[in-house]
Amino acid sequence: MPRRSSLPVTFVVPTLVILLILSMVPTLYAIIIALQNRELSSAAYSWVWFSNFVDLFSDRRFLNAVWVSVKWEVVTVVATMVVAIGLGVLMFEVASPRLRNLYCLLFIIPVLLPRVSAAFVWKFAYHPLYGIATYPYRLLTGGLIFDPLSKPSTALFAVASVDVWQWGLFFAVIVLKLLETLPPQPIEAARLDHAKRWQIHAYVTLPMLKAPLISLMFVKMIESLRSFDLIYVMTRGGPGVATETLDMYAFSQGFIESGKVSYASAMAVLMMIATVITFTMLWKRVQA
């Protein structure tokens, strides 16, 4: 590589400047708006400093949204990883190379779908009377009605299942590819020691893949933050507030119910601070 070239500067600087502008302007503006009392209906506003934030902590719906978001994050990340590792290992164990290719292709399809499409597909499938996914239940129980999306106890899991349908299957493909990159010797050695198949994976292959699997989980944690589309289409945060995550609540405060843009922005700022701090710390740890 030539030492003296203008290339790094001409290639990197314009892009970084644009990225910085595009990201910092909205971020700073979000904080400014959060310190004011803007509303959609009027152009007048004044500075109220931290009162939006103070109000948030006595807003029970906000606290509920925090709790729902945390639940959503845990449920989707854990279920995705379990499905991914389970199916990945199964493909590695019992599928012939041709079948593996077929499964890989099939398993990538759901994640490519727009979230809005995926949400609709399953909203129809979960319909209590005419849905294809509730049909087996109607068949077995002789026509009893099961409506997963409108029961507070099941709604979150029903929506989360769509997320896992998209990401769990996709990650199964990645887990398989990771298993295929492993050297065969340790697996052979374990087999010679009469280790059972599941033992080989639990004690040999998966520990060898610890680092990439943690990175994968990290990616899923970031993507799980983008739950809005699914929830917006499938339940709108309902029934009641059972599936109202933070972005859903911020959206409905800012745009649907009251047009309190500043209040919504305060919520968004808190979310932003929490995620940036958490993920920066996690990332440094993953890299170390």
Binding site: V25, A30, L225, R226, D247, A250, G254, A264, S265, M272
Partner: peptide, 14 residues
Amino acid sequence: FLPPVAVAIPLMVI
């Protein structure tokens, strides 16, 4: 990491 809603609200105002 930026939550889309945190970007979208200020951008709408801008």
